[in-house]
Design a protein around this nucleic acid. Structure first.
Lengths: 349, 349
DNA sequence: ATGAAAGCGCTAACAG
DNA sequence: CTGTTAGCGCTTTCAT
């Protein structure tokens, strides 16, 4: 049986109240008394029961992380950031995966409520506005990556438009003038936002992205491989392709190689996600936009802590991307730093 | 303020004791009384405080999941299985990432102890015996994927030897007789075990795997790409390659294509990990050994629950692998089921 | 069938 | 400086 504060008090020869104060550095007492208490606790291997403590304090120093549709490739980085932010306040993370099931989600919300979590982070694979998790929850909620359809909620996500801009800027900086875009299904907000960003960056240069040069399809290598060929047969003058994710980019790179086109000399390539495992192994290695998910996680954690302290910031905030420059679209001078942006980096999964 | 059981009692016009019994379906009382209590609780949106409850019950229905070196590609599937197993007992998961830091690990262990978790799962990226997390913890511990160096502990991991056997059996079944092995650093127990399994399966067929046909290197595409060429230049008669993971296999597939060798007609290929995103996108798609991590997670969860109930099973248990058959080494008849083994499947990250 | 009382481990207000 | 007392939300004897 684990020792309780009563055991400490008894062994140290003080009252429970004094033991409590002694252990928490509160109140005033003779240094030797405090020392004796602390020493006794150490001797007995005393670990104060946080659940008992939270009964009086009202705070559990626990936050829930509810993922709506499984742990994806994005989860680890995000999780790392969240954990680091929360550890500043020694909060622990309670994990739940709703698996696209409203009943299960409801069940988890109840469980987290019963555990009296101090706050909740809701995450999902898409940036599209999603139904709010529940109204009138007894703790603050922050949406991460996914955003709540209710503008009164707090959401932190990626600025996909900025990401699209960065990708195109890298291509034009290298000298591309006739740029195309191979990307995922337009049903995704992220896909549409990246297109918007790409067009904006091209407009800055007096260029454009006609519909004929935007190809939507599944987010897969297969798509990149087959569509790059069709695209170049149709418009052979294309000299740069912005791909909606690294899988498409990889497929495109392989497709171009199969067609005998050189990357980046004939056609330059920029991907999205900076999924190192894939991007760095592509021949040539893929330049790719990075969503800085670790930093997103940190910001989400900090935002939640602020909300718990009463400082709520409703609305959607969108964090900028950065770009990892690699051989598929190198920096023009050849000696630019690989990373633009000072966002903290963490290795891939 | 969230309603307490006292509020329920007052509104329902009963004592707290009766309210408690009524809500928990315990004791005997008039059905109408119970109904009134339950209804009141519903009306007030009452959520019993589990922390308070665990004060008396001694159980928190919470288990810790400590990962020693970050969330990797293997984490999501494992996590899913653990969560499913634990949900049978409505346990929640408290997440901690020690990041290869002993101090941080110690810190998390303390935090979990203070939270009075019912049990702990320790996981890591390697199957090599690792130092036990701490002695005399006040709750049971199960090691998942990683195994404890102390045989008195409970560890559940993958049977890499079996995986190696499966891979080779698939190659020989397709007709390969001169088999090579491109794999990761021999410092990994998993790498050595797979070699052992491969040799055993070959011996069954009266074949062997001379040292000259085993190439160790980093677990990367680059390694597969370059080493497959060197290997075939040295031993052109090789007709099947077992690769230590899917990245190596993918590199090898690309390398073979670059050399003008057909897969699987000239050289067949089997990978390891069955990382669908990579394996299914390779041209041709990669046959690959699957470690059934979701199932590993389930077994780990069930084992922990059993330990919490007092049924401990010390030692290392190794779960068999299965194999996903794809075009790089198809089934001989062409119409075999893609999956051997009835292990539950979950989609990739 | 119901309720009063004690107690889980800890903190805090107030006395002494 | 230290101890007594009350109470956090809930469960559990044990009376009534």
């Amino acid at each position: 049986m684990a020792p309780t504060i009563r055991d400490i008090a008894r062994v140290a020869g003080v009252s429970v109240a004094t033991a409590s104060k002694g252990l928490n550095g509160k109140g005033r007492m003779r240094p030797e008394t405090r020392e004796r208490i602390v020493q006794t606790a150490r001797d007995l291997g005393f670990r104060p029961n946080r659940n008992a403590r939270s009964l009086t304090s009202g705070r559990t120093y626990t936050v829930g992380l509810l993922t709506r549709n499984g742990y994806g490739r994005f989860t680890p980085a995000l999780l790392g950031g969240v954990e680091d932010a929360l550890s500043a306040d020694t909060c622990s993370l309670l994990l739940c995966d709703a698996r696209r099931d409203a009943v299960r989600e409801r069940h988890y919300i109840d469980a987290l409520t019963a555990r009296r979590v101090d706050g909740l982070i809701v995450t999902g694979r898409e940036t599209d506005p999603a139904p709010r998790v529940m109204r009138d929850l007894p703790f603050p909620v922050v949406y991460a990556y996914t955003v709540s359809a209710d503008p009164a909620d707090t959401s932190v996500t990626v600025d996909d438009e900025h990401g699209g801009r960065l990708a195109v800027r890298q291509l034009t900086r290298y000298g591309c003038r006739r740029i195309a875009h191979l990307t995922g299904p337009p049903s995704y907000a992220a896909v549409r936002d990246r297109v918007t960003g790409a067009r904006a960056a091209l407009a800055d240069e007096g260029l454009d992205l006609p519909d004929s040069r935007v190809v939507y399809g599944p987010f897969s290598e297969e798509m990149g491989f087959t569509q790059v060929r069709r695209l170049l047969e149709r418009e052979p003058e294309i000299d740069g392709i912005f791909c909606g994710n690294d899988q498409i980019a990889r497929g495109a790179a392989d497709g171009l190689a199969a067609m005998g086109r050189r990357v980046p000399e004939d056609v330059s390539l920029v991907g999205f996600d900076n999924w190192t495992l894939l991007a760095a192994s592509t021949r040539p290695a893929l330049a790719s936009v990075d969503m800085n998910l670790y930093r997103l996680g940190r910001v989400v954690g900090e935002t939640l802590l602020a909300s718990i302290d009463g400082t709520v910031t409703p609305g959607i905030s969108r964090l900028p991307c950065s770009i990892a420059v690699r051989a598929s679209c190198p920096a023009p001078t050849g000696d630019d730093p690989v990373w633009t942006s000072d966002a903290p980096l963490v290795p891939d999964a």
